[in-house]
């Protein structure tokens, strides 16, 4: 690799991915964004969205596991009614999961809050979502910022740039270029939120 970056431990190594794979690109950028918010801006991550998804999946798997075990212990004709319940419940949960991911999550991969150490400023919240279409190169990052002073107003800021801006020839993520854009977006969000008031 032609980049020279100080490597103290594994987590500081620059991220290298297959630059032709859209999923890997989006994941790398999302991870870098999360890392920036956590380390540089000191946000604490709010896991509610992700947890919701995990719980629904877990309950669905439990239903199917229960159906499997019950049927194994009581061979088929006896287990019929339990199986019907488990199968229907499983598919209903799958439907709920799809609706959840489609309408409630909506590409939001990070929700964080900034708690001011002095306790003077109210808690500000950020929700970040991203979109990268399958064979497209435009990475669209949207930041929803709420100052905490007025719960109703959210300021939305958005970067929409080609991923070629952030990855070099070998597929290595240029963390600094990306985070400088993220920081610009974040600062814009803060100032526009203040201006609204």
């Amino acid at each position: 690799m032609s980049n020279t970056v100080p490597t103290d431990d594994a987590s500081e190594k620059p991220i290298k991915i297959n630059k032709w794979e859209t999923n890997a690109l989006k994941n790398a950028l999302d991870d870098a964004c999360k890392k920036y918010f956590k380390e540089a801006l000191n946000f604490t991550e709010d896991y509610k969205l992700m947890d919701g998804r995990l719980y629904i999946s877990l309950i669905a798997c439990l239903f199917s596991g229960f159906g499997l075990i019950y049927d194994w212990l009581n061979p088929f004709p006896k287990s019929r009614s339990t199986l019907i319940i488990c199968v229907i419940a499983y598919f209903i949960l799958m439907g709920i999961l799809t609706v959840y991911m489609q309408f409630i999550e909506r590409g939001r991969f990070y929700a964080g809050k900034l708690v001011d150490k002095t306790g003077i400023d109210p808690i500000s919240r950020c929700t970040i979502s991203s979109k990268l279409k399958k064979y497209d190169d435009k990475y669209d990052l949207t930041l929803e910022y709420n100052d905490g002073t007025n719960k109703a107003t959210n300021s939305l800021q958005n970067i929409s740039k080609s991923v070629g801006n952030y990855f070099d020839e070998n597929g290595v993520l240029c963390y600094d270029r990306f985070t400088s854009d993220v920081k610009k977006m974040y600062d814009q969000a803060r100032t526009s939120e203040r201006k609204v008031k």
Partner: peptide, 20 residues
Amino acid sequence: VLNFGMIISTALMIWKGLMV
């Protein structure tokens, strides 16, 4: 891991559904 479990569960539930 849950995603893996869900793929297996979907196949399993389709089979059990057919059985019923």
